[in-house]
């Protein structure tokens, strides 16, 4: 294949894949119902409506057919300047020059995929509970999905985790969180207000009579959301709820133990005042405590 390696950016001067990932909001995942021949045109329409990241997921397709379909979808994504992710199949992602791969809980370990695709590739991981989130972070996932928010026919038998898990994921990561699972335009807004950075949609766009109009409805609803601001805690990006005060963040981060000191934007804040301090986007927090040391730390 003469495709560029997975994860290579199209332009030496343009934004990196991770910068584009941070800016993405509407994540389209292909369904199995749309005929392969129609998928590229559905994708074209959805991109016109506001989709800015696409994942190819097809079950029960011959490898050769899937490679051909991936080539066509990847070409559409590249031409329209959106990110192209392949579900599960790392070798396919590499073969077709995708920007990255999405791994479910039963798929390949992130480190193995990283080894095959290189440092530049985007690697996403599905999470269904807090443990999955922590594990994905320790394995350096580039983004995580959180769901299913509602039970869906796409993943039969998997219990819904609600927006609560989206909020937990948003709290515990410093990478984008994609809410997924039976979300319509109104719920997409709720997902962002629960801490998600992106919303993944399958049937609500792929099966819509007008995929472009459906995507646009999602974008419009998401524009109205008050999304969670990013702050920096000990140098690491982290999100908090809009209008949250320091006391709530401290509770979420379990900072109750004696001897923990918090500094916000260079000012040490006494514990008694934490509930009076509102957090704002871009705030820089240092959370310190005593560790062993003699001379020279």
């Amino acid at each position: 294949m003469s495709q560029p390696p997975a994860g290579s950016s199209g332009s030496a001067t343009g934004p990196s894949l991770r910068e584009r990932l941070l800016a993405a909001r509407l994540y389209l995942v292909s369904d199995d119902a749309t005929p392969a021949a129609e998928l590229p045109s559905v994708l074209e329409a959805a991109i016109a409506g506001g989709v800015d990241i696409f994942q190819l997921r097809r079950k029960g397709v011959e490898p050769g057919d899937l490679l051909e379909l991936a080539g066509r979808c990847g070409q559409v994504c590249r031409q329209r300047g959106i990110l192209f992710i392949v579900d599960d199949w790392v070798e396919l992602a590499r073969e077709c020059g995708a920007d990255g791969v999405h791994l479910g809980q039963s798929d390949m370990p992130i480190a193995d995929a990283r080894g095959l695709l290189g440092e530049g590739a985007l690697i996403g991981r599905s999470t269904h509970n807090r443990g999955h989130v922590d594990e994905a972070m320790s394995q350096r996932a580039d983004y995580i999905s959180a769901g299913p928010v509602h039970e869906t026919p796409t993943k039969p038998g998997r219990p819904a985790v609600g927006f609560e898990h989206v909020a937990v994921a948003a709290r515990r990561t410093h990478v984008p969180v994609v809410a997924i699972g039976g979300l319509g335009p109104h719920e997409a807004r709720l997902a962002l207000e629960s801490g998600a950075d992106m919303v993944a949609v399958v049937r609500a766009i792929c099966s819509a009579p007008d995929p472009g109009a459906a995507a646009a409805r999602f974008r419009q609803s998401m524009l109205e959301a008050v999304s969670w601001p990013w702050i920096f805690v000990n140098g690491v990006p982290r999100k908090c709820r809009p209008g949250e005060h320091l006391g709530e963040l401290a509770a979420a981060l379990e900072l109750a133990e004696v001897g923990v000191v918090v500094e916000v934007n260079g000012s040490i804040l006494a514990r008694e005042s934490w509930d009076l301090v509102d957090l704002h986007a871009g705030d820089r927090l240092e959370v310190v405590h005593f560790v062993g040391g003699g001379c020279g730390g």
Binding site: V260, H289, F290, V291, G292
Partner: peptide, 18 residues
């Protein structure tokens, strides 16, 4: 006894040698 001041590890094991 002497001590040092350092960032709390928010993710994972928080225990220090103290």
């Amino acid at each position: 006894i002497t001590l040092a001041v350092r960032r709390l590890h928010l993710d994972g094991d928080r225990r220090s040698e103290l």
